[in-house]
Amino acid sequence: MTDDPRTSQPTRFPSEPEQKRPGFETAMRTKPDHGEESYVGKGLLEGRVALVTGGDSGIGRAVAIAYAREGANVAISYLEAEQADADETKAWVEKAGRRCLLLPGDIRDRALCTELVERTVGELGRLDILVNNAAAQTTNEDLNDIDDDTMEEAFAVNVIAMVRLAKAAVPHMQPGSTIVNTTSIQAKVATENMIVYAATKGAISSLTIGLSNLLAPKGIRVNAVAPGPVWTPIQPIAKPSDKLEMLGQDTPLGRAGQPSELAPAFVLLASKEGSYISGAVIPVTGGIPMY
Rank of each mutant, 00 (worst) to 15 (best):
N144F: 12
A154F: 00
M194T: 15
G122E: 08
D149Q: 10
H172P: 00
I195N: 07
K90P: 00
L116E: 01
V180D: 14
V180I: 15
Q186P: 01
V189R: 13
G71I: 01
T150E: 15
W92S: 13
V74F: 08
Y67C: 01
E123F: 04
N73Y: 00
D142H: 13
A168Q: 01
A169F: 02
A75K: 01
V196M: 02
K188S: 12
A134W: 03
I179C: 03
L127W: 04
S177M: 06
R108Y: 02
H172K: 12
L127G: 06
T139W: 08
A166E: 02
E70P: 01
A166V: 13
E118A: 10
D145P: 03
A166D: 02
D147T: 06
A135W: 03
V157H: 04
I146A: 04
Y67I: 02
A86H: 05
T182N: 09
E80H: 12
R99I: 01
Y67T: 01
T139A: 09
T139L: 04
I185G: 00
I185P: 01
V163F: 15
Y67E: 01
A156C: 04
E70H: 06
G71L: 03
E115H: 11
N144M: 15
E153M: 13
D85T: 05
E94A: 07
N158G: 02
T114E: 14
A134N: 02
P175C: 11
L124E: 10
I107G: 09
M194W: 05
T178N: 05
T183N: 06
D106E: 08
G71D: 03
A81R: 13
T150G: 14
I179P: 00
N158S: 07
D106H: 06
N144Y: 11
V74H: 04
K90M: 11
A84P: 01
D149H: 12
F155V: 05
V157F: 05
A86N: 03
I129L: 15
L79N: 13
I195P: 02
V121I: 04
E70D: 10
D128Y: 09
A134C: 03
G125R: 06
D147V: 11
E153Q: 09
D147Q: 10
T183F: 04
P175D: 06
T120H: 08
P104D: 15
N193D: 14
E141H: 13
Q137T: 14
D87T: 07
A134M: 01
E118W: 00
E94I: 03
V117A: 08
I107R: 12
P104W: 13
A111I: 04
A86C: 05
P171C: 14
L130D: 09
K167N: 12
E70N: 05
E123Q: 15
A72R: 05
M151T: 08
L101K: 04
A187G: 11
D142I: 07
R98Y: 05
C113W: 06
E80M: 10
D109F: 04
M194C: 12
T138D: 06
I76G: 09
T191Q: 15
I76C: 13
A154S: 14
E152D: 12
W92N: 08
H172D: 07
Q137A: 15
